[in-house]
Write a protein that binds this DNA or RNA. Structure first.
Length: 255
DNA sequence: TTCCATGTTCCGCA
DNA sequence: TTGCGGAACATGGA
């Protein structure tokens, strides 16, 4: 599930439930999920605030930050009694409640870093598309320096951080651009439309999912199947492969 | 049983 | 230097 909108929802969930409670113990149920040797430095501390950059979630533990990446199947669960089936790390709090980091497929990471800024710099992440610094002008500047297919660019976390396979398709669908199009063949108007589509799709997904837990019917996501009817123009949804990822698009209105 | 998967990294080639 | 295809990682669900 976790692309930028889902991680934003996890961040709000974390902030709503797990702040200002002393961490009594941390149970690592599968150490393959760890990005550090040990999470011990966090014991006895509390989380004070959260921060998100792209698909990375950070929680301030006072001079140290927990970093969570959710891979393909990561999730959070704040619970009282039994941990969820795929819990990999469990934080035990002094109020008797627990926060589980769960991840069936183990592609995620639970890590400790000095700060979100340090991590973003050292890891080479691009700007977060919902950050105020990500302006149309900034997006244009990024495109000027790049070649290749537009979808591949949207998926590159070192260029823009947070867009994954579903939302790349979604933004291109909204901007009426074929995912196979190369950057050098995009017009100024298309760049602007794509910029607005990226921000709109991510923002609307966060609002809609945090309310209904689902996707708006006008989105492409609920129609990701070969031969489906396009919810926008009635065209046919096609399946192909772009940037080695399964890609859906409307053969009629995306050009 | 087989295929597919909302992610990322690494390698070789152009 | 940049971009791209393919493989690998580990596992559940349809």
């Amino acid at each position: 599930m976790p692309e930028l909108p889902e991680v934003e929802i996890y961040a709000r969930y974390f902030a709503r439930h797990a702040l200002e409670q002393s961490i009594l113990r941390i149970r690592v149920l599968d150490s393959r999920i760890l990005g550090v040797r040990s999470l011990k430095p966090l014991v006895g501390r509390a989380f004070h605030r959260v921060h998100r950059h792209g698909k990375h979630l950070f929680a301030d533990a006072g001079g140290l930050w927990l970093r969570l990446h959710f891979g393909m199947t990561g999730d959070l669960d704040y619970f009282r009694d039994d941990p969820p089936r795929f819990a990999r790390v469990v934080f035990d709090f002094d109020n008797g409640m627990h926060l589980a980091y769960e991840d069936a497929r183990l592609f995620g990471v639970v890590d400790i870093v000095s700060s979100p800024d340090d991590f973003v710099r050292e890891y080479g992440l691009g700007p977060d598309p919902l950050d105020p610094t990500f302006t149309l002008r900034a997006f244009r500047k990024i495109l000027l320096r790049r070649r290749g297919r537009i979808k591949a660019l949207l998926l590159s976390q070192d260029i823009i951080a947070g867009i994954g396979n579903l939302y790349a398709d979604e933004a291109l669908f909204r901007a009426s651009i074929d995912p196979r199009r190369t950057i050098d063949r995009m017009t100024g108007d298309e760049v602007r439309a794509l910029y607005k589509a990226i921000r709109g799709v991510l923002t609307e997904a966060i609002a809609f999912k945090s309310r209904d837990g689902d996707y708006p019917a006008r989105f492409l996501v609920p129609h990701r199947e070969e031969g489906q009817r396009c919810p926008r123009c009635g065209g046919t949804i096609r399946r192909t492969v772009v940037a080695t990822r399964t890609t859906y698009y409307c053969a009629k209105h995306q050009r």
